[in-house]
Amino acid sequence: MEITKKMVEKTATKLTAEEILEGKVLSVKWEPKLKYAWDNGPAIGRYLAELKNGKIIAKKCDKCHRIMIPPRMFCELCWVPSGEWVYVKDTGIVNTWIIGHVDWKAKRLDIKGGVRPITLSIIEIDGASKGMGILHHLGEVDPWKIHRGMKVKAVWKPPEERTGSITDIKYFKPVK
């Protein structure tokens, strides 16, 4: 059966935004207070501590020999505890990227008005196994000139501003 305009007018209750805002219909506002303090464990803990030092650290699997970032206490593929800690470089290559016209709250950016698009990228880190990397922003680059395999390097916050977070790296910029 097809729903016609006439059927909608006869059966539906019309509701305007004003009626909701003015409290003419029942509405419930609830702001959940959901707070967590996740225990990092040794792997994520040291990864973040090293970021604060301006370094990127990985962990090696002694079985498949992968150098894994972010580091983990066990190799999820070989099912064995991971081995030694290995520093990797703060350079890498672009695996994939976007030229984002909406922000993370789905709000449209005023690109025509001069706002820079969001250039988020997966960066394969030099020294880590192929395909392992960091999700981060690209900067100091024309968004339309980013290309697959482009060489990039981390731009770090000054040491006194670092907090032990992935944002201790401001972004990655192209290098020759």
Binding site: W38, N40, P42, A43, M73, F74
Partner: peptide, 12 residues
């Protein structure tokens, strides 16, 4: 409390 491990290491 288990401050020394993440949920990953707990299940592992």
């Amino acid at each position: 409390t288990t401050p020394d491990v993440s949920y990953r290491e707990l299940t592992y």
